[in-house]
Design a binder for these strands. Structure first.
Lengths: 253, 253
DNA sequence: CGTTGTTTTGAGATGAGTCAAGAACTGTGG
DNA sequence: CCACAGTTCTTGACTCATCTCAAAACAACG
């Protein structure tokens, strides 16, 4: 008979653990408990939704690998992406007896784990640190949403895009998915536009401008921040909202 | 010696209770416990902040009366309002050991109550219904944020404004602060613009258009929805994200 | 009745959208 | 290994929603 904690289980929850651990240091017990609370994991192709608007859910979805997003479909057939999901992110847990107002889907080949609500509750009760880390994570998610609001409300196309690249860099670095200043971003320009509230055409032109400025390079679904400081400056990016430390003014990127 | 529950205490938490009760029916015990968990109440003049970016807090703030907002200040001196606060709304509770990323202030003369974190925790532990209602409320707050993202990302000026007027109508009705199709909205056009991501000038012109269409009337800080259905249509407003019922497609407004 | 903040109007500038078409990939089957 | 179909990316020309600047009308308030 096989033990539930295989190597596989471990690597699967690594991003989640990395993220939570960045907020509240966890011990081995905590990590084992998290691994045990995740029941099933399923693989998704790009475009497949794992949370659907209007449904009710009794489990929390955790992105284990790949890349995803939450979005709302609009009446005119368009959609607005309201958040990106990187490995270690989970869908909010405030939707118990409520029809959920948005959908979530994979943007790249991904795997998604399920943590049934009872497991989550038990996990939080027995592992205070995990509970605090989860609360912290959800506070950061909210803060990200607020920053997006500023993006759409006050920033120009180039600022928005630069800001998104900075945000994703920091988030992916937190879960150990960056190499130097490079990370995988396997999404189309159209999808970028759906998140940034820009037309595909304008996304393209804006990307060109960032490349022309020597601020980033994009090839084969990978983004490299060539001049992180300059990029952060044009984005008016200050990463402190993504961090747990209480430093009032954090260094750029 | 005076009993803690005076008439005053009761009327103060009425909006909060109304809101929570709309999500999960509460009994008298629950209500009394909520009233007791609120320690101090303080009055604020327009413009005064009660949550400040960068601070840490060990209490939740509850707007008892008046009108407020959360916002982020930008480097260029502008600010983006990220959420309106109507009576019964509370500041998120995910910021325990964390520097908060935004500020909150009164937009009209308001009173704000404090609920220390220990009280909140005890309240949730002993009153499951209240805990569920609070979670529900915070899920609705998140949903509102997502809808704002769509506002800024995909809707035109007139749609955004119509949407905001619909949203506020439903939210204020939930806490019993509407009369017929009228509610108090004691904020300036400039402040409207800060929420909608529009210049003051354009706010003005957009308001005129809504008036010319006979969709709303605005006088002396009061808004009246003259043609709610028409307004909801131009806004592409569907209020189901504000409600607790699970009806898949709710009626407009 | 002046001072200050808010609303309204006008005119010109511009960032981003739309439409349309061509180029460059990507993967697939012969 | 090539040809083909389907995306995705790129470019150009034109339109338009919204912004900016600037000033006037109005309101509130001591």
């Amino acid at each position: 008979m096989m033990h539930p904690e295989t190597n596989d289980d471990w690597s699967r929850i690594r991003p989640l653990v990395a993220r939570l651990n960045s907020y509240v240091p966890l011990n081995n017990d905590d990590v084992v408990a998290i691994a045990r609370a995740v029941t099933s994991v399923r693989d998704l192709q790009p475009g497949m939704a794992f949370v659907k608007q209007g449904e009710q859910t009794n489990a929390v979805h955790i992105l284990m690998s790949g890349f995803g997003c939450r979005y709302k479909s609009l009446t005119d057939g368009q959609r607005q992406i309201t958040a990106h999901m990187v490995p270690g992110d989970m869908s909010g847990f405030g939707f118990m007896s409520m029809a959920i107002d948005h959908s979530a889907a994979a943007l790249a080949p991904s795997s998604v784990g399920l943590m049934p609500l009872p497991n989550l509750v038990a996990l939080c009760e027995r592992h205070t640190r995990v509970a605090r880390a989860l609360l912290h994570a959800s506070a950061v998610d909210e803060a990200i949403g607020r920053e997006w609001l500023i993006n759409l409300g006050h920033r120009t196309a180039i600022q928005r895009m630069a800001h998104l690249f900075c945000e994703l860099f920091v988030r992916l670095r937190t879960v150990g998915l960056t190499e130097q200043n490079t990370y995988k971003l396997p999404i189309t320009q159209a999808e970028l536009g759906e998140a940034l509230g820009l037309s595909t055409v304008h996304v393209n032109r804006t990307l060109q401008e960032l490349r022309r400025n020597g601020q980033i390079s994009v090839k084969a679904g990978s983004v490299t921040l060539l001049q992180p400081a300059s990029l952060a400056a044009t984005a008016m990016f200050n990463g402190s909202y993504l961090r747990s430390d209480t430093a009032p003014v954090a260094t750029a990127v």
